[in-house]
Computed example of a mutant assay.
Amino acid sequence: MDKKPLKTDFYIQHLYVYVSESERMALFSGLSFAHFLEAIEKPENLLLLKHPYEEASFNMHTHLDFATREEYGQLKRARSNRTGEFCWVDFRSEKQLNSLTAQEQAELLYLGHKKEPVKSPFFTSLQNEYAYLAGEEKELTKIYFRRMEKLGELIAHHFTHIIRKEANGQNFFRRRMKDLIPELPKEQFHKLRRDMSEGVLLSLADPEKTKNTIELHVRTVGEIDFMDEFWDDLDETMRRPLSGRIIYDRKLKGWK
Rank of each mutant, 00 (worst) to 15 (best):
K42I: 15
E44M: 08
E44N: 10
N45V: 07
L46G: 07
L48P: 09
L48D: 11
H51E: 15
H51W: 13
E54G: 05
S57H: 13
F58N: 11
F58K: 15
F58Q: 13
N59V: 06
M60P: 08
T62P: 13
H63S: 12
L64K: 14
T68I: 06
E70Q: 09
E70S: 11
E71W: 05
E71Q: 15
G73T: 11
G73E: 12
L75I: 06
R79S: 05
S80N: 05
R82D: 01
G84C: 03
F86W: 03
F86E: 03
C87S: 01
C87G: 01
W88T: 02
V89R: 00
R92W: 01
K95S: 08
Q96I: 01
Q96D: 00
L97K: 03
S99A: 02
T101M: 00
A102H: 04
A102V: 03
Q103D: 00
E104Q: 07
E107L: 00
E107D: 09
G112E: 05
H113A: 14
K114M: 12
E116H: 06
V118E: 10
V118W: 07
T124I: 04
Q127T: 03
N128H: 07
N128K: 13
N128E: 15
L133N: 03
A134Q: 12
G135P: 08
E136W: 06
E136V: 09
E139A: 13
E139S: 14
L140W: 06
T141N: 12
K142E: 07
Y144H: 14
Y144Q: 14
F145V: 07
R147Y: 14
M148H: 05
E149T: 12
E153F: 10
I155E: 06
I155Y: 03
A156V: 04
I163P: 13
I163C: 15
I163R: 04
K165P: 04
E166K: 13
N168M: 12
N168V: 05
R176Q: 15
R176C: 14
